[in-house]
Amino acid sequence: MYYIRPQTLAKALEAGEEPGMLYLAGGTDLILKLRRREVQARGLVDLQAVAELRQIRAGGDWLEIGAMVSFADLLNNDTAAQEARALWLACSSMGAPQIRNQATLGGNLANCSPAADSLPALLVLQAQVRLLSRSGEVLLPLAEVLGRTPLWQPGTLLAGFRLPLRAGVSGFAKLGRRQALAIARLSAAVALREENGRACGVRVAFGAAGKRAFLSLDLAEELNGLVLDRGFTELACRQAKKVISRALGERASAPYKKEAVAGVVREALRTMEFVTSGEHADVDRKGGRGNED
């Protein structure tokens, strides 16, 4: 195996086209997989020096998040904290500080673990995925990319994500065995706009409930147009149980997750109330060992 670190996107693409080459983002998943021989590579193309991939930029109607933006970078970005609340919360609940410093959003999608924390959040935030290859650049809805196996063809470079700005409020919650480090047992993200006290454009996504994170269109449809009151939360929790039950079928975890999802959705909805800028989500991050609830 060999290692290269290109300085430009063009050089990175060129290197990634060689057979057997893998792109290396933060490495928190890939390095373990290489060591366990679950993945083989002739060489690694480390993307750390490609400056464009590390940027978070808000311009016009879009928030652009480079694939090499780390979870910690995103947490330190005020625009992201305001405009992509669900993603910000997902980043804050992912891993330990050491992992958040190193792991990237691009890597989270590329690795595509069923429990990937950022994906349900990116789904409800209507993220588009920016993919580069020799034939140029394409922007695809994340939901569409997640429907493909493999996610993209070899030689494709995931450059980042594009999220619409001013798209409403969003929230995220996850169930882990303990607060720090825990791999999500179940996660939920919600986004909506409030219009005259009613929910519009509702989007709900789940993680760690099946092979990949997914948007529940059924649940969104049932919640659209409803008055945002206590009844909304109760209905969302009740219907989420049905969604998870369908998604998990006969899996051993189904009876547990089907019940647990009500609490996770309730929590995700609760996080949407905290949408003021600059505020830390410490309400949801007790940080220490074990949950309070």
Binding site: T28, Q48, Q98, Q102
Partner: peptide, 15 residues
């Protein structure tokens, strides 16, 4: 300036 787990950083990445 940032903490990392050195078991998850390749030598090349630290260059």
């Amino acid at each position: 300036g940032k903490t990392v787990n050195s078991c998850m950083v390749l030598a090349g990445q630290a260059d």
